[in-house]
């Protein structure tokens, strides 16, 4: 008997989404929905345990970039603010924590959280005047602030001037260091994805991005919600800065380096901007690659440029979008 074969494509994502609340019907569906999350949790918890101390430290720094990339992706994709203020967040958070530690004798256990909240507050205040600006104007202003801060410190010599604030208390236990930031990443990823997907304020944020007039007509102030979103984004960066300054034991002008503003953009391009995990994956790819290429010196930049151009031109959806598409629509042969 002849048998004909036909290629069938199932789009599980659409099916699950269309059934929405009724999706939790079978173990298979549940596993499908939770799979990516479980892989992420498992990956982030196991990875630090299987690499050498040197790479653990690389991963710590990668973690800071991951937080910045999540912050960038959150503000850009869910609130419509293209924010290049990563360097400002890291700088403000780092210096604040350094000041609290060196000048006021606070231990990092207190200084880091305090610098996170106070820093986010300061950054939000700095951005308040330019929140009504849209698109590229906001991006430019957010990019200029950290440059300005760096110059200001160099010129006036405050906070140790070009030497920075040295001899801060250092986080010494490498296991604490790495798991502190990795667990925080997990909390942040799940927290923000819950916020934007399931909380009512997430809908307001998305409205601020796509439907400003409808939000205004609903009696909601665009500026207030942009400020709240910037506070969240800034807090992630300020924590990163505070954490870095106690990882190095030093808070200096390099905390305002533009890398902190630019890499999140690259990470979002590489990872894909569709979902929150995109920038996360991008940062986890880019930072270690950059580290591995350290031997090539300045040629690193060339390599970086090539990677970016490749993604922008040939693979616009990004790595994670691609993986997701393949994950959701799996093809198989069926008998007709």
């Amino acid at each position: 008997m002849m048998q004909e074969l036909r290629k069938e494509r199932l789009d599980r994502g659409v099916k699950v989404r269309a059934d929405s609340i009724y999706a939790i019907s079978s173990l298979k569906e549940i596993m499908f929905l939770m799979g990516p999350g479980l892989i992420l949790v498992f990956g982030l918890l196991v990875l630090p345990a299987v690499v050498s101390p040197y790479w653990q430290r690389v991963l710590c720094i990668a973690g800071v970039y991951v937080l910045l990339s999540i912050s960038f992706g959150f503000l850009a994709n869910y609130v419509g603010l293209v924010c290049l203020g990563g360097a400002l967040f890291v700088g403000v958070g780092g210096y604040l924590s350094g000041i609290l530690n060196a000048y006021f004798g606070l231990s990092p256990v207190l200084a880091i959280p305090l610098a996170t909240v106070a820093g986010a507050f300061v950054c939000t205040l700095l951005f308040l005047p330019c929140l009504p600006l849209r698109g590229v104007y906001f991006a430019i202003i957010s990019f200029v602030y950290p440059l300005l801060a760096g110059r200001l410190i160099a010129a006036t010599g405050v906070f140790g001037g070009t030497d920075g604030i040295a001899e801060l208390d250092v986080l010494t236990n490498r296991w604490v260091n790495i798991y502190l930031i990795f667990i925080l990443i997990l909390v942040v990823v799940f927290g923000i994805s819950r916020l934007v997907n399931y909380e009512d304020i997430g809908l307001v944020f998305r409205g601020v991005k796509d439907n400003e007039q409808a939000i205004t007509a609903s009696g909601l102030s665009i500026t207030i919600y942009k400020a709240q979103a910037v506070f969240i984004g800034a807090a992630l960066g300020c924590f990163g800065g505070a954490y870095l300054s106690h990882l190095y034991g030093w808070a200096g002008m390099s905390l305002f380096a533009i890398d902190f503003s630019i890499l999140p953009v690259a990470a979002t391009v590489v990872g894909g901007s569709g979902i929150l995990y995109g920038p996360l994956l991008g940062a986890f790819l880019l930072v270690p690659i950059s580290e591995a290429l350290r031997a090539f010196g300045t040629l690193r930049i060339v390599f970086y440029a090539i990677v970016l151009v490749f993604f922008v031109v040939f693979w616009t959806e990004g790595v994670l979008e691609y993986v997701r598409r393949k994950y959701e629509q799996f093809e198989h042969w069926v008998r007709v």
Binding site: I201, V204, L220
Partner: peptide
Amino acid sequence: KNLIPPLYSPR
């Protein structure tokens, strides 16, 4: 869900 933002408003 279109009505969530106005229902979320202070008013």
